[in-house]
Design a binder for these strands. Structure first.
Lengths: 333, 333
DNA sequence: ATGAAAGCGCTAACAT
DNA sequence: ATGTTAGCGCTTTCAT
């Protein structure tokens, strides 16, 4: 019962009275006589045969593995992204190998692994090292696509939310609800999401003839955003609307505002970006611009899969429009 | 520059003027003369050589891949778990392959993949299919360990929080703060976390001579927990303390309580389990029992790695104590 | 329709 | 210390 050496195609072939090749064909849609196929499948079942992917990979140059490089899953929106991605890729026959780069100072070991596994493709969800990884992978013929964060030089294929549409929707909403002095809490300068959203928001405000938004760095963290919020609110002029470039920071901001004794929505507006599930919680009720999660993931996957199938990936960014979600954090009532 | 066929050990060997084996040795800590090693590494660098893991896997029977089977990442605690796990495994030289089983109705395809990749080990974080997966993997000699949720039959190795200590700590805390009529919002009956926490809590309350806790099923979802909360509060007797077996449900419960016009902490106590980051948010402030995340992950990883190294995995569950974290959701002030 | 044989890139005896 | 050789388990011509 307990055989530690898993069955090979040869074992199956023998039991079924055919050759290895026949077994291989049976599994890969080749030409096999109906009755032979029958016998093969029966033998495989009895031996609990599962084709060894490593061996297959060696001869086909396909691993069925997609690498996902991501800093960490601490942004509330990422787990949702990963779930969706994993499902979509599974449907296409691929599995996700996780490369969290949180503590990783060094790029080389990461690169060695990324390339060593002969991944069929790589998805970059964090910007750190993006350019380097992308070029190295390209040199090895591995398609790379950036997800959510993109390459601002537009040299790498990417898919993200339409940051312009989002930032403008938030800006317009703030303006329409009578806010005058805006502020932006942004993240890192390497993050396209941060940079683009900040810029488009700022430009929209400027075009409306309103005072230039104040800026503060929330560093993509709870603590950092708390500090940024306190600095903004304690400063002059005091903003009456704060746009946080991610929901994580929006959520942190709302709470910091409350702790300062103000009521988000009534005393000042707060908005985030992405529409992570937590932003819909009653205790949070964060106005935000919803990233079209399924569309973004589907686009990412289909572009990547097409590239794996030989249709070269264009170094273009697909920007998908979402929609504004207005919640209590920005409504005066 | 742009060669699509990645360099092989033979390419490196030629360029360095040595044999394939020498290259292999250089990469695997074998005996290589210093100057030869020099030349090999230099050649490897120039050719951007990275050993093909699939080929290596074929001859060593080691893939350096660990499978993680998990329903989805929607419980706030899971992303934290995965981050930690990924880091710990990376340190040990392994990468995580994600098998989210959310939509998966069928076990067989999952099993085919799980075994086809010749994973070095498997971590099961969700209970669905656990027994079946574990036995199949065992038959193939693949170590399997359950994380967070465990096998209640204790037939599979596992690591989890000390649910008894946790449930009792919550119970005691409720009792000490003067609560009398308790309730439990639990999840699925296949989930050991749900079952054990419910049972130990109930027993502790019974031992204290208090009325038997009311029970409601929150189905591990926000919506389900909302309904469960409304049912409990609308019923007779009305509980003055609700223990939710996960933070996800605790967070949902708190908010449902508020929406009913009650103030968590003052009007009735709410507690969760795990200490997911969101439970610490001021807007949530959920009393909970903190899972010792690092310890749980370290134990899981070290047991698994030991098993991979040949020290058989005992079908025992490691239960690690955490600590009570009291927040506003359970304090009357 | 099927089998034989070569080869994918690596490691691991075994010789030397 | 290093090269030679034989696999690891699969796919894929090429014959038949």
């Amino acid at each position: 019962m307990n055989k530690l050496r898993p069955a090979t195609s040869l074992d199956v072939a023998k039991l079924a009275g055919v050759s290895k090749s026949a077994v291989s064909r049976a599994y890969n849609g080749g030409y096999v006589a109906p009755d032979a196929r029958q016998k093969i499948m029966e033998a495989a079942r009895r031996l609990r045969y599962r084709p060894n992917q490593a061996a297959r990979s060696l001869s086909t140059n396909r691993s069925n593995l997609i690498g996902l490089a991501i800093t960490a899953l601490d942004n509330q929106f990422y787990p949702e992204l990963v779930d969706e991605l994993s499902d979509a890729l599974a449907l296409a026959g691929f599995r996700l190998v996780l490369f969290t780069t949180r503590g990783q100072a060094d790029l080389e070991p990461l690169l060695d692994e990324l390339l060593g596994f002969r991944l069929d493709g790589v998805i970059l969800a964090s910007t750190s090292f993006a350019t380097r990884v992308a070029t190295e992978c390209a040199d090895s013929g591995i398609p790379v696509i950036m997800l959510n964060n993109i390459d601002m030089g537009e040299e790498i294929a990417g898919v993200c939310t339409d940051n312009r549409a989002g930032a403008e929707a938030i800006a317009q909403h703030f303006i329409e609800t009578g806010r005058r002095q805006m502020a932006v809490i942004h993240g890192f300068d390497e993050s396209s999401a941060s940079v683009e959203r900040t810029r488009f928001f700022t430009e929209a405000i400027a075009r409306a003839g309103l005072p230039y938004p104040l800026l503060a760095n929330g560093q993509y963290t709870f603590a950092g955003t708390g500090e940024a919020t306190r600095a903004l609110i304690g400063g002059t002029p005091r903003p009456d609307a704060i746009f946080c470039v991610t929901d994580l920071m929006g959520i942190a901001c709302i709470q910091a505002v409350r702790e300062l004794g103000f009521k988000p929505g009534r005393d000042l507006a707060v908005a985030g970006f992405d529409n992570a599930q937590a932003s819909a919680w009653p205790a949070i009720a964060l106005t935000t611009y919803a990233t079209p999660l399924k569309e973004v993931v589907d686009s990412c996957v289909s572009r990547l899969v097409a590239a794996i199938d030989g249709h070269p990936l264009l170094a273009r960014t697909t920007r998908l429009a979402g929609h504004l979600v207005v919640r209590a954090s920005s409504t005066p009532d």
